Structure formats: structure tokens, C-alpha cells
Amino acid sequence: MLKGIYLTLMIGPAVPVPAPQIVMDSLSNIQVTNSKDRSGFQLTFTVGKNSPLLTTMLPAGYLDPITTRVIIIVTLNGMPHVIMDGIVTNQEFSPSSESGKSNLTITGEDLSVVMDLIEKVIPYPAMPVIARIYTALAPYAALGITPVVIPPIIPVTKNPVTEGWETQKMTDRAYIKSEASRIGYIFFVQPGPLPGQSIAYFGPDANLPMPQPALSINMDAHTNVESLSFSLNGLAKTIRIYTILDPVTRKIPIVIPAPNISPFKPPLGIKPNLPAKLEYATQSAQLSPAEAAQDILGFLLNNSSAVSGNGSLDVMRYKGLLRARMLVGVRGAGITYDGLYYVDSVTHNIKQGEYKQNFTLSRDGLISNTPFVNV
């Protein structure tokens, strides 16, 4: 594809195999988006009316939705990176009157889409959250998905005799995401590290504390990004007031203010962004002490960042792949916005002879709290 960069595309039901040459020759564009919620991909093929992809392979079900699995691997300087392992969900064909200009577009999502196909009704008597999540993820081991489940900081288990039990009445993905949102966790499926393997992560929104090479702007020959912009949202931060009843008499109200700061994603600037909004939690007084503590902790973990950044880069000039859910340094943007950021999402745009990435960054606080960044 480019000097030092090689693309591997694997397609097939259950266990994908390398795509044949006729498919690779027709491939004109790949777009892959990795984020902390869910990831997706889009493959665009440019074909003629007599192309075997249209006349033979497509009618035979080669790219049928739901049954077709796609793995995309980028090898950079000898190191393979699995940037997508997903399922085809949509197929579009745009015929053209010009010879060889028809477009076939294949769209899909990561393997978590398989968890969203069948609604289930499953009781979980006397089972804590971690046991329920492992039970819901167990059937997907056949797809190479390894669960990584972090127990909640404040566990709550209902007594089935006096309090009843939890019952799942939705798809597995919807149920896991609802449980994650309730305790302030996130859930996503990340491809890799090897082809055919994925990690299903259920836990706090914590980025790997390993900074990637810095994004440099306005630094002449050292500039490695094409564009970069920042914004500061003064309404992003909130203080929520919780009112609970004392655990002994259940009559005396106790007021607890909760700031919008996550212990797993601390501010990366020395000038904090102050909260501008005040809101009151509803129905918190009806919860048990353990449930109220879990609700408060969930709010703390689901914090929002006031500073956000957007930009694009050329992989050849950056000399590496920018990865989501990790840290990255920024330099050349000025004293206010330089420093470390969390990488929220990355979109890979791959064409013949071109590999670019769009990215979004976030953090709390202005002015870097570190004297240097990894270059």
C-alpha cells in the first residue's frame, strides 16, 4: 500500500480467510472508526458490470450481512495491528453508466453487534454484577472474544427471598451497557491483539497510561499533523446534589454534593475547569445506602471533559498509528492547550497510496501539568 505499510483483508463466515486478489484489486477505500462506545467499518469497491465480485461472488453470498466476518490488519514497520474485527451489517450497490465506475459499499460493526440480535429473558437470582456480565458474555467465546470484567467498587447483591432478583429482558449488549451505565462503567469490544481475537471490556473509563508520540503543530519540519483545533465548553461540568436518608432511622436526610471528577481520568491541566451547572438527583432518598453509594460513584465515573480537540494526520508523517483509549501529547498549540490528552476516537481512512487518520481528544484543565511530552 505504502512503503513500510501493508494491508491485510480477511473475509468469510465464522473464520475469515485472506481476500482473493480480485477483491483486493477492486478495493478503493477503507474507513474504520474506533471509539470507546462501539467501532465500525466501511469498505468501498469500484467494479465493472462483468467483475467476478458482482457476477459470481456476491450472488453466492460472499459479502452477505450478519453471516460475513471481516478482519482488517495493518502492518506498519513489520508490526501487525488489528484495527477491525467485525460483522457486515449493510450492503449498498450504486451502478454507474460509466464503465468500471460502479460502487459496492459494505458497512459493518465490531463483534458486539452479534450481542444485539436476540432479545432474552434471563433471571439472575442472587448473582452480583460481575457474575451476570460473565454469564452474558460466555456464549461469545466461540467468536474469540475474551471478557475482561472489572468488579464494581461497591458491590450490591439482592436477597432473592426479600428483595427479588435481577432479570434481563433485552439483548445481551443492551443489558451489559445498561449495567455499565448504572455503575459508571463502559463496555466495548476491542479487536486484537491477534487476528480472530477480541477483548470485551467491562470496567471504568480508564485510558492506558502510556503516552503515544506527540502530535506536533506549527513546528516547521517537526509538524506531523495536518490540522488540529481545540474548544472549551464552559457548560460541560456539573455538580449533582444527592439526598439520602440515614441508614439507622431512615428519616434524617443527608445532603451529599458530588463533583464531576473521575478518579480514573484525572485532570491533565493545572488550571481546572469549574462546574457551571447544579442539579439534584431524583429518587436518591429511596435507595439503600449501598445503592446510593453506587449511584454517586457512577456519576463520578461518568464525568465529562470540558476541553476537546479534533484533527487529522498522515500516518507516514506521524510515523506510527494513533490508537484510541490511550494518552497522547500535544505540542506547538501554545501554553494553554499543550500537554497530554485522552484519545477518545480514531478514524482510519485508507486508500491506494494514502493512509490518514482523524481523531478526537479530550481532557479537563488548561495549561499542561507535565513539563514535556513523548516525542
Rank of each mutant, 00 (worst) to 15 (best):
N103I: 15
V70A: 06
D25M: 07
L137W: 08
M316N: 15
I72W: 08
P247I: 02
S39R: 02
P155C: 03
K49L: 10
F188N: 13
F45C: 04
L327K: 08
I30Y: 09
T44A: 10
P213H: 08
V225I: 04
A293Q: 15
A136C: 13
N349Y: 09
A60D: 13
T107L: 09
F93T: 01
I199M: 01
V32Q: 05
S39P: 04
P52C: 10
N273P: 13
Y341Q: 13
R69Q: 11
D172T: 10
R132P: 04
Q357I: 13
K265T: 12
N303W: 06
S368V: 09
R323H: 11
S181I: 14
I5S: 13
Y62S: 07
T89F: 04
M326A: 10
L278T: 12
P65W: 15
A214T: 11
K36R: 09
D64I: 15
K3G: 02
I72V: 08
A214C: 09
I118S: 03
S112N: 00
M79I: 15
S51E: 04
G184S: 04
A131E: 13
Y342P: 06
G4N: 14
Y341N: 08
P289C: 11
Q190D: 06
V346K: 06
D25R: 12
N90G: 15
H222K: 10
Q294R: 14
S198F: 03
T135C: 01
T171H: 03
P193M: 12
T370K: 14
L361P: 11
P266T: 03
L327S: 05
I133W: 04
R331H: 09
F359R: 12
L235S: 11
M10R: 09
G269I: 04
K265F: 00
V82K: 15
K237V: 10
F93Q: 06
T243R: 02
S178V: 01
I133M: 08
H222P: 00
K158P: 00
A221N: 01
Q168R: 07
L104G: 01
D344M: 01
M316S: 15
D246I: 03
V114Y: 06
V149R: 04
K251L: 10
Y62R: 11
S262N: 05
N358Y: 00
S284M: 07
Y242Q: 07
M1N: 02
I73W: 09
P267Q: 00
I217K: 12
A138M: 10
G78W: 08
Q283L: 15
P20W: 04
A221H: 03
S262P: 01
N358P: 00
G12Y: 06
Y242L: 10
R38T: 02
I150A: 15
Y140F: 14
L297W: 14
L76S: 06
P128R: 01
A293F: 05
V114W: 04
T44G: 02
L54A: 00
T360Y: 12
S112T: 00
I133D: 10
R317G: 13
A19S: 01
E92C: 02
L208T: 08
T89S: 12
L313H: 07
T171Q: 00
L58W: 08
G298I: 04
T89C: 05
P275F: 12
P209M: 13
P195H: 10
E166R: 12
V74E: 08
R173V: 00
S26H: 02
M84P: 02
